[in-house]
Design a protein around this nucleic acid. Structure first.
Lengths: 161, 161
DNA sequence: CTAATGTCTCTAGTAACTATAGCTTCAAGA
DNA sequence: TCTTGAAGCTATAGTTACTAGAGACATTAG
């Protein structure tokens, strides 16, 4: 039995009878799609708990780290900030509290998401218009620049020339 | 006539017969919704050209700065990076070139926007489900945490407790 | 056993700002 | 005219969320 396995055995034995899974930082990286330095960074800022170490001082992760990291990555991808993720993780560490707070975070985020979607939808419309309007012409006939200037304050950037 | 007006008169006289508009950095900020330090930052990184100065060394902006800053802010809001905006501005400064490049930037951005929209739409669905599922319960019954962990790799974070 | 790959720490760099400190300038009222 | 408070100046440092590099030690495949 390796030192790594010993450490992990001491740390955790999961529900099922089969042997505990452990991961190096590289394996964790491959599993979650999160880069190695980013994993260390999450540990540094306290989002991810410090894992056990092997005899050679290398990080040894367990299933719980995998879950937590996956949670963090997924949340980040969905646009939650580190602060929000921290809140969610803290709340999840105290499951006896009412979930009103979590609900508030989710609701606030939902509002933001709706706002972002509507802005992206109008951007999409503009971009599609641009791409169709600007077909093999010259820049002076291209509406991309105008569109971006116009929609801000009704001014035309190309008028400067 | 103030020194500021002199500088601006020398810089620019617009098509219409009326007197040239000039702005302090604060006015520019109010007009565009862009914070004062951000305007100075844009000048520093070369996105916004250096304006004239008053006798007392204060920045004096003209209409063209307003347009350009509005363009930058609008583009930023729509998610274009500084590098992309720089490209667009450079292209707009050479209006004799074919607009294929601008088109490519817009198309690339359109692809990204579509991707973002679809991810935000599924996030929206998840968040709505969360908000509805989590009604006055306790955290341990709340699906927000599970949802965020599950969708990453099918693991349940709360199982750690 | 050696070579290649992986991991370690530490420092510094990136994008896109934002804030602070300590000063000068400007505009408006007494 | 003086003064006082807002606005502006420069310069530096902090923020968020990473990413990259240097140089040393660990692990693993052949």
């Amino acid at each position: 039995m390796t030192v790594a396995q010993k450490i992990l055995d001491a740390e955790k034995t999961m529900g099922s009878g089969k042997s505990v899974e452990s991961f190096t930082i590289g394996q964790l990286s491959r599993e979650t799609g999160c880069k190695v330095p980013t994993i260390r960074y999450y540990e540094q800022i306290g989002l991810l708990p410090e894992p056990g170490r092997s005899a050679g001082n290398q990080r040894v992760y367990g299933q719980q780290h995998l879950s937590r990291l996956a949670f963090i990555r997924h949340s980040r991808e969905l646009g939650f900030s580190q602060a929000e993720i921290r809140q969610l993780l803290e709340l999840s560490d105290h499951p006896d509290q009412p979930c009103a707070e979590i609900n508030a975070i989710a609701q606030k985020h939902l509002d933001e998401v709706n706002h972002r979607i509507s802005r992206l939808e109008s951007l999409k419309a503009e971009l599609e218009r641009m791409v169709h309007a600007c077909q093999g012409g010259k820049v002076e006939d291209c509406r991309v620049i105008d569109t971006l200037a116009d929609h801000a304050h009704g001014n035309c950037l190309t008028a400067e020339h």
